[in-house]
Design a protein around this nucleic acid. Sequence first.
DNA 1: GGATTATTAGAGAGATCTCTCTAAAACGGT
DNA 2: ACCGTTTTAGAGAGATCTCTCTAATAATCC
Lengths: 200, 200
Amino acid sequence: MARPPRFDTDQLLDAAVRLAAAAGPAGVTMAAVAKEAGAPSGSLYHRFAGRNALLAEVWLRTVERFQEGYLRALSAHDDMRQAACAATRHVVAWCRAHPDEAAVLLCSPGDFGRADWSDEHRARADRGNRRLFAALGSLTSALGAHSAEDVERLTLALIDLPLSLVRRHLRDGGTLPGHAENLVEDCAAALLDTLPGHRA
Amino acid sequence: MARPPRFDTDQLLDAAVRLAAAAGPAGVTMAAVAKEAGAPSGSLYHRFAGRNALLAEVWLRTVERFQEGYLRALSAHDDMRQAACAATRHVVAWCRAHPDEAAVLLCSPGDFGRADWSDEHRARADRGNRRLFAALGSLTSALGAHSAEDVERLTLALIDLPLSLVRRHLRDGGTLPGHAENLVEDCAAALLDTLPGHRA
DNA sequence: GGATTATTAGAGAGATCTCTCTAAAACGGT
DNA sequence: ACCGTTTTAGAGAGATCTCTCTAATAATCC
């Protein structure tokens, strides 16, 4: 029917992710992505409505890939305590396996121009967040806690804490030490014990 | 002896911090800072060697202001456990009091172009970090822990964890809830108990 | 093989940014 | 009143970036 693409969407997004990891979101210019992918700028604008759309896709593809595995890890165990530990380990393991995408994940949507996104992109981001917080909310209940502050504690333990560790190590181009998974699991477990319905 | 300045260094840095908080480090262009401060670009280049130097000063002034209060809080108590709690509370309280500077603090030096800084600026950053880690290291010893992983746990509890909470709330323009200090103190205390020489 | 269609290819307009450079202005000291 | 110094003031060169637009290209379908 038509000429086959030489540069598909994922290929271009991969180039953008590499640039974001190397130079931050600001380094993701259309010119730089085209050069990194070896594609002409026309191909970029053929796939993406503009730089805002490209940045949104970079962010959303990364977050969705991360969340997919995260939610799977979270629901892989019947015991809630085990599920929580698996989730924290997943954060570290995923970042270790995908360092460039991890660098994106450590940013905020604002860094990728969220204010200038289309409604569709914003809705996609909201949908992912809702799915994640729904899972965390039900886990909170399963652990016997119910208040909004309890959800906050769980978010801190199962997402923010592991991401903090990753941030400290990947920043300035380092790599994650082998004990990172054990460390975050241990710390997360300690934080879970601060929830009202905890069992020592 | 000479014409008095209409725009001093702090005034220009304040404008840059406002821009960084509103649009991220990428929004801190020389043109934008000049406009925000109401100064001509010549005045900016009179004070700073270039954009890299300005970004370095924005980052360093912010981090040094933060660390000053942090170290004071850390050494204000004889009981190490109390000192640790005061430090975590300080992180949240300082960010609440200085939301624009907090937005800077939540970035990394890399976001402010660390790779392009002068040796002096890099040395200043290293000095601050050394001072902070020296304090954390001695606190680790005082708590009866000694390994590098123990320092890592303490860093996680006393710096990364409170900053994570701040990041989650200040991101997308929110404000810090009143219970934030209590929450981080409580969580940090739980993490301190995971150190080898802990007392329940 | 010719028509159709998605894609590549890149030139170029217009905007913005960094940084330099020159001239004027405002003060203190003598 | 004049001089030396610091600072303001902003014009402008050169680079870079976003985005548009046109033409060429390579596949499929009939």
